[in-house]
Design a protein around this nucleic acid. Sequence first.
DNA 1: GTATCATTGATGACGTGTCATCTATTTTAA
DNA 2: TTAAAATAGATGACACGTCATCAATGATAC
Lengths: 154, 154
Amino acid sequence: MRQIEEMRYLVLAAQREGSRMFTDMLQPMGITTSQSEVIRVLFDFEPLSLIELGDLLICETGSPSRLVNRLVKDGFVTMEKSKEDSRKVKLSLSYKGRVTAKKIIEVEEAVYDSISAKLKGAPVKSLIALLWKQVQGKPAGNALERRISGKSRK
Amino acid sequence: MRQIEEMRYLVLAAQREGSRMFTDMLQPMGITTSQSEVIRVLFDFEPLSLIELGDLLICETGSPSRLVNRLVKDGFVTMEKSKEDSRKVKLSLSYKGRVTAKKIIEVEEAVYDSISAKLKGAPVKSLIALLWKQVQGKPAGNALERRISGKSRK
DNA sequence: GTATCATTGATGACGTGTCATCTATTTTAA
DNA sequence: TTAAAATAGATGACACGTCATCAATGATAC
């Protein structure tokens, strides 16, 4: 098997296993990994319209209206029409959403700590550089750039 | 943003963008990326039962019965009951499936070539090692191990 | 030989991801 | 100022991916 093919499947495998890991840890909070990304982004960037939110999500391209509708229905997110532009929608976290966001951050920190420990001494920086080459300028890469360079609530 | 968090989202982003890339290139052949992985694995390892196939797929855990049923319906794969154990099923590629497999290989080679060019000089080997640390011993990692060490048709 | 257990695969259910299409609203330009 | 174009979001359609459950078949133990 070619090196690059091995790399391709390793990226897929790592994504899947990472996702399963987060799925298990988020289950007690009643949310999925995609939902947690939305809550996490809103925690840092609220208020947002649907399209603004979509532009900050790596998990999904386009406008995440169904994803968000579920979170509204479950009480994590509030949605109101924008006053300036009634096509737009203004998304924010509810109190429940903010509480959940903090729990998500705890879970994430724990996972990141454990991965960091496992990768002690590994060339994480060059992997990051390599992966950036693959996603630069594409929708998911653009979203991540905005996430990194955007203002954070903290 | 923590390095490890950046890496997490880069892995997700790279997986998504790579998938979109293959989706576009496979569309003319009327198959999806998951379907192409099945055809590709069958090309190398046929005949297989559903569980054996599932143990060689990175894209999905468990038994890929619906994925395969669609490929049977579309004429890429043939399915018959095993003679020794009638619980089992014997999956093989049809002629159409073999022709498609060869087209898939061409597409993959082209993509791998273009990625290789972009990654000229990058320490791909150590990045492969890093990713292996994340998936070793887990379902997707085990599947990839079997794919690499397994007998190939060629 | 039969009762129990394990294995294989099918299926229902649920939440994504992605695309195309539709409606409502706002912007623009004639 | 009103007709055309652009934009925001909702929705239908389709194929995953994952889990739980079920029926059929085969293996094991007594």
